[in-house]
Design a protein around this nucleic acid. Structure first.
Lengths: 191, 191
DNA sequence: AGTGTTGATGACATGACGTGTCATCACGTA
DNA sequence: TACGTGATGACACGTCATGTCATCAACACT
């Protein structure tokens, strides 16, 4: 199946990341990307839903992984530890790609529409956590709150992990953020 | 200043809400909106940054109000009460417009790009809360956490307020959600 | 070998979105 | 009366995104 060079999708993604880095996201056009990848414009939209999606499409399986990780935790485990354990299980894929993800985040933070897309990613993670908690029998509203806490926590740790100068692992930073949230929230809710 | 009918911006917003309700957001074109409002397409983009913005543009002053409300709270007030007080002060404008906001939320929930825009609104609220907390001297990371809690809490209460069948006031629901977050988080963080 | 199917891509047309630019002209002011 | 101001009209343009049909290597089956 294919008289063309293989790996069209990866070539597009690589070309896009290069061009976004060189000239910025908004100033880069889809024809420029596909020209560098040796393909036509139409083919770009066969692989990615829109121009932004090329920066996010390698994470399609994340929600499923989240739901699974949460659902299988022992029922006796406290909610906060379920969150922590789930996130730690999730991030093993992230650790080796730190430089790449750092470059990607720089691009995302430089453009409003990409920041919106990033927020949607966190929202999808939250929805997946709700599903995971419910599968293990957690009450609906509790699942909602726990999922928001979990996704917010991940966002904090992730941003910190990719901040310039940060050297600790994502796993360590998740633990640290868990502690921070625990202590700060205890203080916040103190009457 | 103006040889034309006044209130162009409002006419556009009204026409847009009608057409979105009748035919859906994606299926409605900007020329259709401006035709109903008796204006040209170009004028639409003079008043709104993009097609989605017409559903959000009446909330530009919200972030400033948030920052102000938080900054002026007495330093002795516990963080959680600062959040609650700030939100209660914020929502007096919302209460009388419940039907309109309910119609608007239905449109937003029907379209991915609008949901993203809605998430950005909550994110902007969170940033405004960070600014407010910092102005009153709160430590940076504490302000970050408190702001996330505050914006998430508002999102919960707001969605619930506009749910079909809900009759309680937004103010009541904020109090209820404050209690929910407090108890659930206490349970979540229990070791 | 020959034949048919499959699936990725090319090629082309089309419509909506969003912006830049200049002209127009009622209104306020001097 | 003259002038400046500011909102709008009119037009051109580039990009994004999608629909549709043609092409043709790889594969399966006979």
């Amino acid at each position: 199946m294919g008289r063309w060079e293989p790996g069209a999708r990866d070539r597009i993604a690589d070309a896009a990341l290069e061009l976004f880095t060189e000239g910025g996201f908004a100033a880069t056009t889809v024809p420029q990307i596909t020209a560098r990848a040796g393909l036509t414009t139409r083919t770009f939209f066969r692989h990615f839903a829109d121009k932004r999606d090329v920066l996010f499409a390698d994470e399609d399986e994340i929600p499923l992984a989240i739901t699974g990780l949460l659902a299988v935790a022992p029922l006796s485990t406290p909610t906060i530890e379920v969150i922590g354990g789930g996130l730690r299980g999730l991030v093993s894929d992230y650790e080796p790609r730190r430089d790449q993800l750092r470059a990607r985040l720089l691009i995302i933070q430089s453009d409003d529409s990409l920041r919106e897309r990033y927020l949607r990613k966190l929202s999808v993670m939250s929805a997946a956590m709700v599903a995971g908690f419910r599968q293990r029998g957690t009450d609906g509203r509790v699942a909602d709150v726990a999922a928001k806490i979990g996704s917010t926590l991940f966002g904090f740790a992730y941003d910190r992990w990719l901040a310039t100068g940060e050297t600790r692992s994502l796993s360590e930073l998740i633990d640290e953020t868990l502690d921070l949230f625990g202590s700060e929230f205890a203080a916040s809710t103190a009457t």
